[in-house]
Design a protein around this nucleic acid. Structure first.
Lengths: 208, 208
DNA sequence: TTGGATTTTTAGTCACGTCTAAAAATGCAC
DNA sequence: GTGCATTTTTAGACGTGACTAAAAATCCAA
């Protein structure tokens, strides 16, 4: 398990630069810039994350989150945004002042604390910046974020919001199966999709 | 300045074992037991605290707080007790559950945060355990703590609450000068006391 | 006051997370 | 495809803060 502020910070950087996608590769130098450290330090830490099962490291290529790592990153984002909400809503901070403080508060380790804070704040759906707050189970509220289909976990009914890097033949292949902007995807259909589509379809959860 | 959780924890241990007195010597092994580390580690850290000007180290004798160190320790105690108050009063934790969490929260570095938290909680005078919360300037509320005369900083009018290790002749010498339980000491008198009395007289601030 | 038990410090090692400098892999231009 | 520029990793070092084992200081008892 072995948490530590540094490990958590690197995990968060990976999450942020991959825009929350477990499928996106991020270069160690990108992470280095984001974290304000030198690339070799990131390489070392990414290897640690890899041993912890939080990330996958492909040498000379980059790193990406594992499912476990993404869940963990999400719990950090949750804590960060709940604390920001607290700081602004209850302590009267300006929304631009709270990031650095929340950065520290998010590393406090107590599940009970997070859940009570969440309840105290009335289970807010988004933080003062308007960013959505992940739920305790690592999912977003239904009306929440757009994500890549590959990141939909668990696989549920969802709506198509866009296609990334969609080449013409990919798009026409999708059309051929009745997939277009706004169409609803069912779990049983998703499992029959070509694997490459999973990284290309941008979706959000459909309301129940 | 160079804060760090470890330095702060050692400083707090010193403060706690000296019962908040800048005049009391504490052995490194006492601190080691309190912190759950081995004595050599404490020796090393005490030397660091000494370089930082937070403590004085007399080899083979022990360590004690400097005025600066005591102020810093007080600010940590203040943060700890404010957070405990928050956890119990606002988040509904039981008073016995909050220590470990407050232990983490107290290391969050933001003056603004502490002051806003204090205001949010209505400037509480004591925490859920009944322990007094130091004010931002490092003093206790007037009806607050009993301390050794030597620790009264700045020296102000105060009331005698007791005498530590008072031998018979010390006590009679004090009586001879009109000092007894409950009597009020004036700053201009205090400066004329024998130095040894400063470590023996227990006092609290007199109301204005 | 001297000797032995105890306490404390010093010396040397280790893990973590950073760094710089050098080597290795990648990839783009030609 | 070969070669060079760029990116990334490896190698080796350092600071912090912990440890164990050994040396030094202190304290107490005879």
């Amino acid at each position: 398990m072995s948490k530590s502020t540094q490990r958590e910070d690197h995990l968060k950087a990976l999450y942020a630069l991959a825009h929350g996608h477990a499928s996106t590769w991020v270069s160690t130098s990108q992470m280095a810039v984001h974290l304000g450290v030198k690339p070799p330090s990131v390489t070392a830490m990414v290897q640690v994350l890899s041993e912890l099962g939080w990330a996958e490291h492909r040498p000379y290529h980059g790193a990406r989150l594992t499912a476990t790592g993404r869940k963990l990153a999400l719990s950090l984002v949750r804590k960060h945004r709940l604390w920001e909400t607290f700081l602004v809503q209850r302590l009267g901070f300006g929304w631009e002042e709270v990031h650095d403080i929340a950065e520290q508060l998010e590393h406090v380790d107590s599940l009970e604390l997070v859940e009570r804070l969440d309840a105290y704040l009335g289970h807010p759906k988004s933080d003062p910046h308007g960013d959505p707050i992940p739920k305790a189970d690592g999912t977003f509220h239904p009306e929440g974020e757009i994500c890549v289909l590959a990141d939909l976990d668990p696989v549920v009914r969802c709506k198509v919001k866009g296609v990334r890097d969609g080449s013409d033949d990919t798009l026409s292949a999708m059309s051929a199966r009745g997939i277009s902007l706004g169409s609803t995807l069912l779990p049983e259909d998703i499992t029959t999709f070509p694997v490459t589509w999973l990284d290309q379809l941008l979706v959000c959860k459909a309301q129940e």
